[in-house]
Amino acid sequence: MKRPAAVTELLEELKRLPGIGPKTAERLSFFLMRGSEDQARRLAQAIIHIKEKIVLCSQCHSITDKDPCEICSDPNRDRSTLCVVEEPHDVYIFENMGHFKGQYHVLMGVISPLDGVGPPDLTIDDLKRRVEQNNLKEVILATNPDMEGESTALYIAKLLKPYNVKISRIARGLPVGGDIEFADSVTLQKSLEGRMEL
């Protein structure tokens, strides 16, 4: 039997979401059909709200509902330290940790030569401007420790070298709770290079 057109439409839209295949889309659509109309409206409204109310912060490029964002407009944050991350959701990962009190800069991606993504496609020019205009003491490069993240960090470090600012890179090496037995040579080498005196 053919599905009603409204169900097919919902299935098609759900399947577009990351990590959702045909089976999951079907399960979600039946869950929504069984639920109340009020519940469906709330979900639809929440989706519309993120498109209507969420903007990118003009300073750090993180997602926010007011510009500048809460972190950029907070006078209690340390304005001399800037943490450079790849994506807006990385800001929330750092904020959930609760130890970093500085400000952020979101690159909106990484330099990826194999995908043709270069510095003009990112917010690197804005980062340079922030370093020029603000009295920054340290820029922490917190891109992923993969090839693209490392090369982006190297590029930014080279670009910001002429400015009187400390440029640091987040530590790389063994994860907490990991096992040396299963560590590969590169990870182990990085953990030795980044060792700390106790």
Binding site: L114, M147, S151, L154
Partner: peptide, 25 residues
């Protein structure tokens, strides 16, 4: 997948890295 050579020195030099990526592309 076990690493035999990571070519770490290439990764730490942008001039070399982009040429290495040119080879693989």
């Amino acid at each position: 997948a076990d690493i035999r050579k990571s070519f770490q020195h290439i990764r730490e030099n942008l001039d070399k890295l982009y040429r290495g990526l040119y080879f693989v592309e």
